[in-house]
């Protein structure tokens, strides 16, 4: 049965090709970080204004991506936005007085959270909350303030 052997080989080749494409996709084209997103620990931070921050936005430490925003909700008691983010498990040395700021990458890029470590001995754990925050810069507000300061000088 020569033809059936040929078919077997071709089908095998087809499957290998498909799986190889998937591997290429995993290694060369995409990043695998979010596969491990169920690991790590979650912390929260309160902001007066999150601007255009979206779930799944990056959380960085000196520009290095260390986690993702997992959810954004609103706290009716404090009238603030609560951002929960999941940090990679190896980032377990952040002091409790770490500051979280919302920045924009580039002029029109997406917004992300940047963490700046403080000096306390206690470290952030799963469920900890960051108290020192800096809200997103809203362009209209900046322009508004600029206008006020410019006009008041004259």
């Amino acid at each position: 049965m020569g033809s059936s052997r040929k078919i077997e080989i071709l089908v095998g080749l087809f499957v290998v090709l498909g799986l190889a494409a998937l591997v290429v996709m995993a290694l060369n084209i995409s990043n695998l970080t979010s596969l491990s997103s169920d690991k790590g620990y979650t912390i929260t931070a309160r902001f007066d204004n999150v601007g255009g921050l979206r779930p799944r936005a990056k959380v960085t430490l000196s520009g290095v991506s260390v986690g993702r925003v997992t959810g954004i909700s609103y706290d009716r008691e404090t009238f603030q936005a609560v951002v929960s983010m999941r940090l990679n498990p190896d980032i377990d040395y952040l002091p409790e007085d770490t500051q979280a700021s919302i920045y924009t990458s580039g002029l029109l890029g997406e917004q992300y959270i940047s963490l700046e470590p403080g000096a306390e001995d206690e470290v952030l754990k799963d469920g900890s909350s960051i108290t020192l925050t800096q809200s997103a810069v809203v362009l209209e507000e900046v322009i508004g303030k600029l206008m006020v300061s410019l006009t008041s000088k004259n």
């Binding site: 998937l22 996709m25 995993a26 060369n28 084209i29 995409s30 990043n31 695998l32 970080t33 979010s34 596969l35 997103s37 799944r56 991506s65």
Partner: peptide, 19 residues
């Protein structure tokens, strides 16, 4: 070309959902 692609495309989200 490649680095931007790799930082924006996530295997567990984009690729898995495409599949």
């Amino acid at each position: 070309f490649w680095s931007q692609m790799q930082s924006k495309v996530e295997f567990g989200y984009d690729v898995i959902n495409g599949v």
